[in-house]
Amino acid sequence: MSGGWADSDRKGRLPADWPLLRRIVIERAGGRCEVIKKNGKRCWDDGTDVDHKVAGDDDSLANLQLLCKWHHARKSSAEGNAAKAAYRAQLKHPVETHPGIIQGPPRPTKNKGF
């Protein structure tokens, strides 16, 4: 099975004081998921995963949040899908016109009497 921590080098890039940072984030959040739902209310589930708000290696407390398993999985999936889409976009080649086609000025649209 692939995915998650098994294929990631992220765990090795965490700072030496990660356990302390994690504990601070959990205490700051009161142990509860910090996601604010569409109805404006905070998620009621227990927080289990300390997550980076903005992906990358910014381990500042301002960039860390506590999420429940469900919200963390949803956010990670969205980030993974966005990364895959960006990668696929890089692989696409621009559409080329046939070398025998002469591109002239755009033709005016015909007035249909309206």
Rank of each mutant, 00 (worst) to 15 (best):
A82K: 07
G4H: 03
A85H: 08
L61E: 06
D57G: 00
L20R: 04
K110I: 15
C43F: 12
K11H: 09
A86G: 04
G47M: 07
E96V: 13
P106L: 08
H71M: 09
A16R: 10
M1G: 08
Q90R: 15
K53V: 13
I101M: 14
K53H: 05
C33T: 10
N81F: 14
L64T: 01
K75A: 11
K112R: 13
K53W: 06
R74S: 13
K69D: 09
S60H: 00
G100L: 15
K112E: 10
E79N: 08
K41I: 15
K110Y: 10
V25G: 04
S76M: 06
S76E: 05
W44L: 14
K11W: 08
A6G: 07
S2M: 05
G113I: 00
V54I: 15
D7H: 05
A85W: 08
A55V: 10
D59G: 07
D59H: 15
N111Y: 07
R13N: 04
G4E: 01
V35I: 13
L20G: 04
Y87A: 08
N39G: 13
K75Q: 13
L61I: 11
I102M: 09
A16S: 10
K84N: 05
R22L: 02
N81P: 04
G80R: 06
G31P: 02
R23I: 00
G4V: 01
P106A: 10
P99H: 12
K69T: 11
G4I: 03
R74L: 14
H72V: 02
Y87N: 01
A85Y: 08
W44I: 15
G3K: 12
Q65H: 04
T109I: 12
I101E: 14
L67T: 02
K112T: 11
K11R: 08
D58P: 03
S8C: 09
S8V: 09
V25Y: 07
W18F: 03
Y87C: 01
H72M: 06
A29G: 06
L91V: 04
F114S: 06
I36S: 02
C43P: 09
D7I: 03
H93R: 15
R22F: 02
L14N: 00
P106F: 06
T97C: 14
D7M: 00
H93P: 11
W44C: 11
R22W: 01
W5C: 02
K53G: 02
G31A: 06
I24M: 03
I102K: 14
G104C: 11
L67E: 06
L66T: 09
H52S: 05
V54A: 12
A73R: 09
W44E: 13
E96K: 15
H72P: 01
Y87E: 07
G4S: 00
Y87K: 07
G31R: 01
A85L: 11
N111T: 04
G12T: 01
A55S: 11
K37W: 09
D51K: 11
W44F: 11
G100P: 12
I24P: 02
K92W: 02
D45S: 12
P19T: 00
C68N: 05
V25A: 12
I102V: 15
K92G: 05
Y87I: 04
N111C: 03
G104I: 12
K41S: 14
A29E: 01
D46C: 14
A82M: 07
A29F: 00
R10Y: 14
L61W: 10
H52Y: 00
D57S: 00
